[in-house]
Structures are given as C-alpha cells and as structure tokens.
C-alpha cells in the first residue's frame, strides 16, 4: 500500500535529473519532498504520476508498476495537481471540478448522477459549495487553489500528488491549503505526496519528509530526524539552528 521507488533514473532534455533514487512513501500518510531549486522534487513527483519516461529503475504503487498502467486506469489511481495550474478562460468552478470525473466517464456518455454527486461532495469538502457557478477567475487565490483541490478530490484516487500547492498564497491561505491537504489523508484516507518549499510547514504538516539534493536522496524519515543542522547544511549549504515548536512539538528551522 505504498509508493516504492527503486533506483530511479530520469533525464529531461538529455540532462540527468534523478540519479538512482530509492525511496518508500508509506500509504495513508502525508509525505513532503523538500530540497533546493532544481534538485528534482518536481521531476520526482511527475515521475510518480507516470508523466515522464524512466531511464532506469522503477516506481510502483500498490505493488503495480506505474509505467505499465494504462492511462485511464492510472488516472483512477493517481491524481496530480501541477504547480500554478491555469483554468481555461471563462470556466466555472463546478465545471473545473467536474473535469476531475473524466477518468470515470464512459466514452461519449454524459456524467451520471453519481458523477454529479461526487462533484457536489468535492465542492462541499473544500467549502466552495456556494461558489460552483462563479468563474474560476473571479475567485481569490486561496479559493482558486481550493477549487483545484476539489477537482483532485472529484477524481477520487487513493494517491494524490501536489506540486507546491501553496505558491503565490498569503500566509493564512497557505496554512488553510495545507490543513486541507492533511485532511485528504486523515479524513479521506488518501496517500498524499507534496512538494514544499517551506521547511517549517513541511515539519508541521507532513508525517514524513524526503530531502533531495542534485537528484539524490539526502535524508528521509520523520520531520525531527530529517530536519537537522547536518541535513540542512548538506542540502542548502546553509547554517541554521533547530528549535522546537512548543505547540506542535515539531522542529522549527531558524536560518543563521
């Protein structure tokens, strides 16, 4: 019931990005991928989603090779929300969320009652049930991100991949979206893997963290074991102190 990655090698445009990475992400938990820009976090996420050809190694989800799944079947198992996704002009919130149902539709058939119910549930889950008729463009940044997450919920997959879901949001909305991401695991029982930039948010909202540098794994495990002065020095070449958040008992990184 986990994502297991073995000796993964991926190149983009002839440049080797992931260089033999092995990692296990347990099912039902929220895992965070952290690391400096260009370390391969997004490439790893896209590889797990089956969007990239692998040069070597393997990725399996629930003991099945992602590369061997058919496109439609994969889309019923794995949902991905890319960074700063853009809705087509003039699209309404409910229509966007309904796109999440596409892997469940039969060819040339309209949405069924069950599909429409799933869309309504997803809207209600993210608190947008009253805004279904609004154009996506008319929403605030935080609401818009909620709408995208509702689309992923409507896709109804056991594995959800989020690429920096908090980019361009202000602080309260970042917290809001990360709480929502956690609920995907705690309330909906999904396995969540997300790329995050903010180390302290990663510590607070993830069950485990994988730290990457130059396409290789630096450290992996519970936040308090990964976020150490040594790992952070190795990853970013930066010195820092590690405090403890007195309320949540999670590590807090304070750069020097």
């Amino acid at each position: 019931m986990s994502v297991s990655i073995e000796n993964l090698k991926v190149s983009l445009g002839g440049r080797s990005i992931l260089k033999g990475l092995s990692l296990d992400l347990p099912g039902g938990e929220v895992s965070g991928l952290i690391g400096p820009n260009g370390c391969g976090k997004t490439t790893l996420l896209r590889s797990i989603a089956g969007l990239l050809p692998l040069q070597g190694g393997s990725i399996s989800w629930r003991h099945r090779q992602v590369a061997q799944m058919k496109a439609g079947e994969r889309a019923r198992q794995i949902a991905i929300l890319p960074q700063s996704a853009q809705a087509p002009e003039g699209m309404k919130v409910a229509d966007l969320v309904a796109r999440g149902r596409s892997p469940h539709l039969r060819p040339f058939r309209p949405m069924s009652r069950a599909d429409r119910d799933a869309v309504q549930r997803a809207l209600a889950d993210v608190g947008l049930e009253h805004l279904g008729d609004r154009p996506v463009a008319a929403l605030s940044g935080g609401q818009r991100q909620r709408a995208w997450i509702a689309m992923v919920l409507a896709q109804d997959t056991p594995l959800v991949l989020l690429d920096e879901p908090t980019t361009f949001l202000d602080l309260p909305h970042q917290v809001d979206i990360l709480r929502l991401a956690r609920r995907l695991s705690t309330e909906h029982g999904k396995t969540v893997v997300m790329v995050l930039h903010d180390l302290n948010f990663a510590a607070r909202f993830c069950d485990r963290i994988a730290a990457l540098k130059e396409g290789q794994l630096v450290a992996e495990g519970a936040p308090e074991t990964v976020l150490t002065q040594q790992t952070i020095g190795q990853m970013f070449g930066m010195t820092c102190r590690i405090l403890s958040d007195p309320r949540h008992n999670t590590p807090f990184v304070l750069p020097d």
Binding site: A71, R76, L81, P82, A85, P88, R99, S102
Partner: peptide, 20 residues
C-alpha cells in the same frame, strides 16, 4: 472533444486525468 477539454487544463493535468 473530451480530450481537448482535458488538454485545455495543460498537458500534465490532461495526462493526470488519463488523456493522451
């Protein structure tokens, strides 16, 4: 038509939704 609808969201999302 349906494939183009998926593609309108960007090619990563389209693939993620099972389109080619």
């Amino acid at each position: 038509a349906r494939g183009l609808d998926a593609l309108a969201l960007g090619s990563d999302l389209a693939s993620g939704l099972g389109a080619r």
